[in-house]
């Protein structure tokens, strides 16, 4: 499995990670190596098998539509790097 530099940079961008120039090759190498190994799934005898979605057989796990009081705002914001007027503050986002 060949992974190009453009590809790894695109993936890093999707994941919102910066890769330093010197890291690109290392990550690319590891990714290729692991993908080569992971490719074995394409040899597995899986014709006609359904995908497993959810490990156990459970279905229709629902909640009642009832309001439950939660924590107060200060507790919810206690870990915020920056907050103002009860909101999380970030640099200006222009839409």
């Amino acid at each position: 499995m060949q992974v190009s530099k453009e590809e790894i940079l695109h993936i890093a961008k999707l994941a919102n990670l910066n890769l330093k120039e010197e890291e690109v090759d290392t990550y690319m190498g590891h990714l290729e190596e692991i993908l080569n190994f992971a490719n074995i799934v394409n040899k597995a005898p899986i014709d006609g098998l359904e995908e497993t979605i959810g490990v156990n057989e459970a279905y229709n796990v629902f909640r009642k539509d009832e309001i439950i009081e939660s924590l107060n705002r200060d507790e919810l914001l206690q870990n915020a790097p920056e907050a103002q007027e009860g909101m999380f503050k970030i640099p200006k986002v222009i839409n």
Partner: peptide, 9 residues
């Protein structure tokens, strides 16, 4: 998708 099928296997 393949991995999810292997999971069934």
């Amino acid at each position: 998708k393949k991995a999810q099928q292997v999971r069934t296997l």
